[in-house]
Each structure stands twice: as structure tokens, then as C-alpha cells.
Computed example of a mutant assay.
Amino acid sequence: MVTPTTLGPGEARTRLHELTVIDVRTPGEYAGGHLPGALNIPLDQIQRALPDIRHVADRGDVLVVCASGARSENACRILAENGIATATLSGGTGAWAADGHDLHRPQGATRATWGMERQVRLTAGAVVLLGLLLGLLVHPAFQILSAGIAAGLAVSALTNTCGMAAMLAKLPHNRPRAAELDHTLARLRDR
């Protein structure tokens, strides 16, 4: 099995012209701003894209990117298990932007998008509030909702994974249209 490497934003910026950049965030997050030239293949579509990613990895270096680095590390692990050498961007697009590098947006992308972390915070907060209110107004057993979310957040922090984000990623606004993903995979094959 190959071992993924890590690039800092400065090194990635210097080498950007020689890298194939794959952004594993949801299409909405990608539309909100991505590294120049990045191709969007959401994390849950990596298995489908393996042959095309292998094709470009055989020809040059692949950099996998997400918002903070957690999803790209997961993607790199999947790719490494399949014999594909990749690198991940340390700190993700957040670190890229914090270093003063530009994020690109697709032409015509005017729809306001929420990052996955913001979607998780809204959902978790709403369910905790709902559990507390129903626990006070209807029956104390509803407070189990709040306890469940608290436990999930603790597990998420300890494991650096997020089950709620995985579920939210399956919602229609977070999914790529089949034609968009097919177009992205064709672009990988053409490299």
C-alpha cells in the first residue's frame, strides 16, 4: 500500500501547474470556492472514479483537497488502499485561503452555498433544541435526541469523522448531477 503525503498551501501553490487537483467536497461547497483547476469528485463518489484517478496518477501527481483536510485524508486513504499515490492539502481550502491564495468559483455560480460544517452545526443545533423543547413540553424522553447528538459530536471529535456530514452529503443539494460527474471523469481521462 502506498502512503499519502501532505503538502502545505505554499508548496501546493508552487506546484499547482504540475498537479491534478481533486476536490472531494460536495458540489455546493466546491461552487463556493475551490483551488484553481480543481475537479470536483465528492468523497462518496471516489470508488466510482478509481479507474480515472488511477489514469491521471500514473501520469503525474494528484492532490486531494477538502475544506479542512479530514475528508481529503479519508479519500487519500481509500486511494492508497487501491494502490494510487496521492497527496492531501494540509488544512484544506481554509488554509489555502488563509495564506492569501485565491479560490475560484464556477461561472454562473450565484447560488449561496453552505459548507458541510455549517450544515452540520445547523442540523445538530436544531435537533438539540427540538429535543430540549419536546422534553420540556411533551415528555422528558425526548431529551434523548439531545443526548444522542451530544454523543455523536463527541465521537466525531474523537474519530475525526462525522456521521451527520455523511448523511447530509446524500441530500439532493449536496449531490452532483450525474452529467456533471460524468463530465469531470471524462476530463480526468483526457489528461
Score class of each variant (00 low, 15 high):
V24Y: 02
R111C: 06
M116S: 02
R118E: 11
T123P: 05
V21D: 02
D99I: 05
D102K: 14
I53Q: 05
T123I: 08
L79A: 13
D61V: 09
Y30Q: 00
V127S: 04
Q45T: 10
R105M: 12
G60V: 15
N74T: 14
V62W: 02
L122D: 05
T20E: 11
A67M: 03
A87S: 15
N74P: 02
D23C: 06
A112Y: 11
I41M: 05
L35H: 01
A87Y: 07
V21A: 09
G28D: 06
V127C: 06
H101T: 03
R59Q: 15
A49N: 06
A124G: 10
C66D: 02
D23P: 04
T26P: 00
P42D: 05
L50W: 08
S90R: 12
T93W: 00
P42R: 05
I22P: 04
A70S: 09
T113I: 07
H104D: 14
S72V: 01
N82I: 09
S90H: 13
T20I: 15
R71A: 03
L89M: 11
G115R: 00
R77P: 04
L89V: 04
C76D: 09
R25N: 03
A109N: 10
R121D: 09
G100H: 10
T93I: 07
A87N: 13
A95E: 00
S68R: 00
I84M: 08
G28S: 04
V120R: 02
W114N: 07
T123A: 15
I22K: 05
T20L: 12
R71G: 03
A57T: 14
A38P: 01
Y30W: 15
L122T: 12
A75D: 01
R54G: 14
A31N: 10
A87Q: 14
I78W: 09
S90P: 04
S68G: 07
A70E: 05
D61L: 10
W114Y: 09
G37Q: 12
G33S: 07
E73T: 13
N82W: 08
R59K: 15
T26I: 03
T93Y: 00
E81D: 15
V128Y: 04
E81H: 13
S90K: 10
R54L: 14
A126C: 13
T110F: 06
P51V: 13
P42A: 07
P42W: 05
I84R: 06
S68A: 03
A75R: 00
R25W: 02
L122I: 15
L19T: 05
S72I: 00
D102I: 11
A38D: 00
V120N: 03
G28Y: 01
I22F: 04
T20G: 12
G60P: 10
V56G: 06
V56M: 11
D61C: 10
T110G: 15
D102Y: 09
A87I: 10
L63C: 08
G92A: 08
D58P: 07
Q47H: 13
P36V: 12
